[in-house]
Nucleic acid binder design. Structure first.
Lengths: 237, 237
DNA sequence: ACCCAAATTTGATCTGAGTCAATCGGCTTG
DNA sequence: CAAGCCGATTGACTCAGATCAAATTTGGGT
């Protein structure tokens, strides 16, 4: 694990030009609060493959993803990996009860986060129930996604998993780029496999099978959905 | 699906003798608040197999489990089922963003819940950040459990799944009955299979295998851990 | 453009868990 | 107390996806 190459921007009034201001945790704050809030966080950049935090680390910061994609994962002692989710701009990371992150987070490609010192952030929340309510909403949304993913992991076939993944990923891109049949896949095949509870070979084979069936086209850095309806049919099963 | 056989107790001051008062969502309230709070909820009883709420139902109530065990699950269109968790006394159910429950909940055996009308409860929370904070804690705890379960579903073998389940279930009983090597299993083999992403046959075979190895003993209504250390070794793997 | 390392794809084979099909056992019911 | 039922167990066989092993492609650096 190489050390994180980190760049920290000078602190300042940067919420104004923040891409996720409307979607993120910050959307619950009014102008005055936001002014106070922006002094708590600082933008931090990570390079491809950098680890932002690790499973066993004591939580000292919370993170608001501003840009890029992160993989969130847990490892078994023998090295098996399960990716429990991908974090996109607007996602808020670091909440836990144990005082430790209970999963690890790597940057996939370049990532920018807004990093908050845990203590300061916790104090700031204390008399801002709106912010707490917003955080709670995000947690509940994640919980719902987690349950959906359990169904996928426990009860779906490889074909269904891959089809569901493509549609789900496309859906998440909507917020960022609008609906498109071209689905960019910044993560590796291994990441996809570890997210779906499959091997890299099965993911690869499934992609090629779908391509031969004319349902998708494997393009540089992603997948093009030639027949979205058929992908949906495969996912529903 | 048979109609729920429901008994509603007369409303009144019953928080005093509530078994979960210390553990549940209510633990965040002071005496005065609790007095007010108890008028919001009513105890409701369910019989074995009754459905408390269904996945597609519009959420009109929140539930605090007081007694018994519930299975929480999602169904695929073709009938495949994934149990996403079991609810025990102290668990709080019903939070969601969509306005619908996104999983179904059945009573396993007799269950008592404290049922709250959503609107009243939501209003009550509004100026009680303590309660909101408590609910948020429960959500975060569940999220952590959900991620652990994803690892189990996606990356563990049948043996590991069963061993992990037995230890996890034993652990949850601790809060109720203290640590014991006798693990009561109120749910059916099918429930266990649907929780672990296995078939009933595989669960059954794994139990018998463990019993033949002298690691567990299959007893009426549960399992006795003859060699807990070995079960732990199997679960860690 | 060329080289190397890493990622991906493809092929051949294996196996853990699923499927299909009897029993078995314990509980309820008449 | 026998019959019937339902959940659980057991056995035989199958198969989806894993594993092992090469190619092949891609991409970054010079």
């Amino acid at each position: 694990m190489k050390p994180s190459v980190v760049m920290i921007e000078p602190n300042g009034h940067f919420c104004d030009d923040c891409a996720v201001r409307g979607a993120a945790v910050c959307s619950s704050l009014n102008a005055a609060e936001l002014r106070e809030f922006e002094h708590l966080g600082r933008r931090v950049h990570f390079g491809a493959g950098d680890t932002v935090f690790s499973e066993e680390d004591i939580t000292t910061s919370f993170y608001n993803v501003l840009e890029g994609v992160m993989r969130l994962y847990k490892l078994l002692p023998d090295g098996r990996r399960q990716i429990v989710g991908f974090a996109l701009p607007g996602d808020f990371l670091g909440m836990n009860l144990s005082g430790r992150h209970n999963f690890s987070a790597d940057a996939i490609g370049v990532v920018t986060v807004c990093q908050f010192a845990k203590a300061l952030f916790t104090r700031f929340i204390e008399d801002r129930p709106q912010l707490l309510r917003r955080i709670n909403e995000l947690a509940i949304r994640e919980l719902s996604q987690a349950r959906d993913h359990m169904v996928l992991l426990g009860r779906r076939s490889a074909d269904e998993k891959v089809a569901t993944f493509l549609l789900g990923w496309r859906e998440r891109q909507v917020a960022i780029k609008g609906l498109s049949d071209t689905v960019p896949l910044p993560m590796s095949r291994q990441d996809i496999a570890d997210y779906l509870g499959l091997t890299i070979e099965t993911v690869s084979r499934t992609f090629t099978k779908l391509e031969r069936q004319g349902v998708i086209e494997i393009i540089h850095g992603g997948i093009s959905l030639l027949d979205p309806a058929r992908v949906e049919a495969m996912a529903a099963a």
